[in-house]
Design a binder for these strands. Sequence first.
RNA 1: GGGGGGUUUCCCGAGUGGUCAAAGGGGUCAGACUGUAAAUCUGAUGGCAAUGCCUUCGAAGGUUCGAAUCCUUCACUCCCCA
Length: 368
Amino acid sequence: MFDFQLLHLDAHSSARRSVFSTPHGAVQMPAFMPVGTQATVKGLEIDQLRATGAEMILSNTYHLALRPGEETVAALGGLHQFMGWTGPILTDSGGFQVFSLAHLIKITEEEAVFRSHIDGHLVALSPERAVAIQERLGSDVAMALDHVVGLPNTREVVADAMERSVRWARRCRDAARRADQAKFAIVQGGLDTDLRVACARQLREMDFPGYAVGGLSVGEPPAEMYRMLDVTVPELPSDRPRYLMGVGRPEDLLEGIARGIDLFDCVMPTRNGRNAMAFTDRGPIRLRNVKFERDERPLEEGCPCAACRRSRGYIRHLFMAHEMLGPTLLSIHNLTYYQRLLAGARAAIEADRFEEYRQEKFRGWAAE
RNA sequence: GGGGGGUUUCCCGAGUGGUCAAAGGGGUCAGACUGUAAAUCUGAUGGCAAUGCCUUCGAAGGUUCGAAUCCUUCACUCCCCA
């Protein structure tokens, strides 16, 4: 039901070209998943989302469990039918919310206790419950519940969270009931090489169908994140997909791919798009800037997206006038940009020229 | 014709003797955003040779150590009664 096939290894880096098959279709990897936290990629209709080239998307256990509730999603046909996306869906476990909403919760060995950000009532999320919710939602890939901590942090705190993440991963695996949903484990360990390696090895023993690297890009310098990938990825089984959670900027994706990462997700193309930033091969541009007022060029020459059928001046106008088409168009453009970036990476890997591709892109981004 | 209001920095709008280059909004300008409590948030926004100086609160004049704030006249404007 799930199959991960390595198609080609880049001759000069650890980049890999692969295909991951799920009950809702195959995903060409390396791949980027747009984020649709609340069963919608903000601002986009499903056909617009599909047109960006995205094959797989991410949604969220915590948010959907709170609203509308997994039973409601199940009653409406499961997550795919609920939101109208027929391709593969990965759901995050809510582990990130333990981190981002940390002031609202208490963590014990048994579970994480949240105070709902919506109405304040207490919500308990245990590894078993995270799995049960995700199975009710019906996503193709469910993430294990992990414990994310902010960085930098003391070794004691990081080690404690890492060890709990390992124990919780085992409980998630044991709680799994549905064969049509793959469970992925998440490596934690902060910026500590030993902890990362130890975590990866323990999780590898549990034989998950996929592995994620989590707890990164939470405030540490990019170089630290790359250093963690350097030590962590080699510890992960080469015949399973490797997913770098929550990353990132275009350069982070290429750095991750070069180190053997197959899958990414990030809010950046959509959030920054809603906030008037467009990604281009010449670096990001802020469409609200007055210099674009009468710029008749498209965001990116040669980009096939709907936004690039208009001028930069028009898109700036939409943002200045607070028209909702502005955020929609830049979300479309940015997601298209990310998908084209990844498609280019896949082609480059197949041709054993990923490093050249990466250098080329970096030169462009540094140009302005 | 009679009576009563109003005029503030790009806009709206506080401010009634010093702590006022002047609250707060808006606008504008710039920045941030990495498993989304984010179509959000932050900063700047009279000028300058700038830990200070100059110009500004309808105009002109006056009172005062000191005026956006008090007085006089004028201009414009709004409301009510004729």
